[in-house]
């Protein structure tokens, strides 16, 4: 069973704007929580596992002692965030347009408060 901290992180992330899918994966690559159909979650978990493994070793190769926090893959349709914490991995799938809108509104509000 995943630790409470990871569970709480997962619950918080699912509520971010534009989240269309979320998957919590344990250290063995098995999805333990998701709001997607089980077979879809399994496919994402399988595809992202080698990516996380390579990302971790790449980060070490680029600078000894550094550690991976997350990878974000922006495609034409969606943005997939793959975040790692200890043994667990969280995959978050977000809609591009909603993501862009929330980014623009946060930039606009920061400008407004600066005036």
């Amino acid at each position: 069973m995943a630790s409470n901290t990871v569970q709480m992180t997962f619950d918080r992330l699912v509520q971010l704007p534009g989240v269309t899918g979320a998957i919590l994966i344990d250290g063995n690559g098995v999805p333990v929580r998701t709001n997607l159909p089980a077979n879809v979650a399994r496919i994402y978990a399988d595809r992202m596992r080698p990516l996380v493994i390579l990302a971790r070793s790449m980060v070490q190769d680029l600078e000894n002692g550094d550690e991976l926090s997350y990878v974000r893959l922006r495609t034409r349709r969606q943005e997939t965030m793959v975040a790692t914490e200890n043994e667990h991995t969280i995959i978050l799938i977000q809609d591009n347009r909603v993501l862009d809108e929330s980014w623009r509104s946060s930039v606009a509000s920061r400008r407004a408060s600066a005036l």
Binding site: E67, L68, V71, R72, L73, R74, T75
Partner: peptide, 21 residues
């Protein structure tokens, strides 16, 4: 990976965040 998940999609941008960079 992106191609495997959806053959019609395409990677446009990539961000890798580490502790330091």
């Amino acid at each position: 990976c992106v191609r495997d998940l959806d053959t019609d999609d395409k990677l446009c941008f990539l961000r890798v965040k580490t502790r330091k960079h």
